[in-house]
Computed example of a mutant assay.
Amino acid sequence: MSISFERVGRGVPGGPYADRSARNRPLRKLPWSCRRSAAARPSRVASIPGVSRSGHAGNHDGKAAVVLVNCAGGRELEIVREILTGPLKTPTILIRQADLHSTPMALDVDTGLLDVAGQRVRPAVVWVRHAAACALVAQAEPAGSVTPLQAAAWSGFLQQVASTATTALPGSTLVGPGQLAQARRLGVRTPRTVVTNHVPTGTRGLGTPRVIVKTQDFRLFEPDRRNWSRWLPSVIGPDPVPGSHPVADDPLVGHPDVGHPVVVQEYLGGARELRVYHLGGGICAFEVDKPDPSSLMTDPGSVTVRRVSCPPAAADAVRALCAAWNLRYGAFDLLVPDTGEPVFLEANPDGDWLWFERRARWHGVSFMAAVMVRELFLRTS
């Protein structure tokens, strides 16, 4: 298969949404705790004949393998593949977005065998990231090279590949503000939220002094960061947060009419912000300190990321949500106010992690992701 690196948006240099093909280098040295974990898990499947360490199958008997599909952005699954085929010695195929258009593939619906450029495997574990049709269109290289019809066909094909596997990652969950209603029913605290195409109307419905206005996933569906300014998150109210990205063309509350639904949410200032990763039951957390809600996109150098112990209440909330949603992997955004009760903001089943690892100088998420896949492979194959 061809080798190419994809990107999510043309981000700020050094930021989490930059073109990361040249920046995210393979892990050179795993943390000591991770190396001990690897040694503690002896491999029962050293190799499969015809599958090389680079992840390519060369036989036609349908041996079990891990199939990773990275449709847009980052090198997360590239790193997972390197660990799987290296220290964890797990047969793995990585399919990138460029391979969708350059490599012959066939899925035998009756047998579940996947043929990639004449290399036939039986998908035991499949992890697909960013396979929505609209994301495939937006992230195509070169721009405009994928039509909506082609994107819909590929999205359906990848869903079918995942459905043939014994285990599919990341799992199933509702994406978007609907997560908040489900979280509340499970007893997890959430901010007051309205989805609206008219910010003043939404703000009146909330009745809070400050709100934050967000367009979800705009980085994925708008690859040109020159168009990002109108979608950046912003805090608005009687006393705007200093440095907050200005969105208001109405003197009181913001866009009088944005033309598409946005999320208008109660703003909880002063709370700790956590990025919590759930990986097959394992939990790791980073504390994120940024001067403004848009800083990750506009000034990533001003953002501080620290590896921290996840507060027990936050870990319990994340595990409860993942159990209810059958979600094996997820990147959770949480706030922890002075009261200590975590506030759930969002769970992203395709959330990146390499940028947070680099900023915190701790690479445990990558290793935990690979170990999670390895253990699922051993169970299913």
Rank of each mutant, 00 (worst) to 15 (best):
Gly9Tyr: 01
Gly14Ala: 06
Gly15Ile: 13
Gly15Glu: 12
Tyr17Val: 09
Arg20Tyr: 05
Arg20Met: 10
Ala22Gln: 07
Pro26Glu: 01
Arg36Met: 13
Ala39Tyr: 00
Ala40His: 04
Ser43Ala: 15
Val45Ala: 00
Val45Pro: 00
Ile48Glu: 15
Gly50His: 12
Gly50Glu: 11
Ser52Tyr: 00
Ser54Ile: 11
Asp61Ile: 07
Gly62Asp: 03
Gly62Phe: 07
Ala72Trp: 09
Gly74Phe: 04
Arg81Met: 11
Leu84Cys: 03
Leu88Phe: 14
Leu88Val: 03
Pro91Trp: 10
Pro91Arg: 09
Leu94Gly: 12
Gln97Gly: 14
His101Ser: 13
His101Asn: 05
Met105Glu: 06
Thr111Gln: 07
Thr111Val: 02
Leu113Asp: 11
Asp115Ala: 14
Val116Tyr: 05
Gly118Val: 12
Gln119Ser: 15
Arg120Lys: 14
Arg120Tyr: 10
Val121Ser: 13
Val128His: 07
Ala131Tyr: 00
Ala131Thr: 00
Ala133Arg: 01
Ala135Asn: 04
Gln139Thr: 13
Ala140Ile: 07
Pro142Trp: 10
Ala143Phe: 06
Val146Pro: 08
Thr147Arg: 08
Pro148Trp: 11
Ala153Asp: 12
Gln160Leu: 15
Ala162Gln: 13
Thr166Ala: 15
Leu169Met: 15
Pro170His: 09
Gly176Thr: 02
Leu186Val: 04
Leu186Phe: 08
Gly187Arg: 08
Gly187Cys: 08
Thr190Pro: 11
Pro191Ile: 05
Thr193Lys: 08
Val194Leu: 04
Val195Lys: 08
Thr201Arg: 13
Gly202His: 12
Gly207Cys: 07
Thr208Val: 15
Phe218Val: 02
Trp228Cys: 04
Leu232Pro: 00
Asp239Gly: 02
His245Gly: 04
Asp249Val: 11
Pro251Lys: 06
Pro251Val: 14
Gly254Cys: 10
His255Asp: 12
Asp257Tyr: 15
His260Cys: 11
Val263Arg: 09
Val264Asp: 11
Gln265Trp: 10
Tyr267Met: 01
Ala271Arg: 14
Ala271His: 15
Arg272Glu: 09
Glu273Tyr: 02
Tyr277Cys: 04
His278Asp: 09
Cys284Trp: 05
Glu287Trp: 12
Val288Gln: 04
Met297Gly: 00
Pro300Thr: 06
Pro300His: 03
Thr304Phe: 05
Thr304Cys: 06
Arg306Pro: 01
Arg307Trp: 04
Pro311Gly: 04
Ala313Trp: 01
Ala314Leu: 01
Asp316Met: 04
Arg319Ser: 15
Ala320Asp: 09
Asp333Leu: 02
Val336Cys: 06
Pro337Glu: 07
Phe344Arg: 01
Leu345Cys: 09
Ala347Arg: 00
Gly351Asp: 05
Gly351Gln: 02
Arg358Glu: 15
Gly364Cys: 11
Ser366Val: 06
Ser366Asp: 10
Val371Leu: 14
Val373Glu: 01
Leu376Phe: 02
Leu376Glu: 09
Leu378Ser: 02
Arg379Lys: 14
Arg379Trp: 04
Arg379Val: 10
Thr380Asn: 08
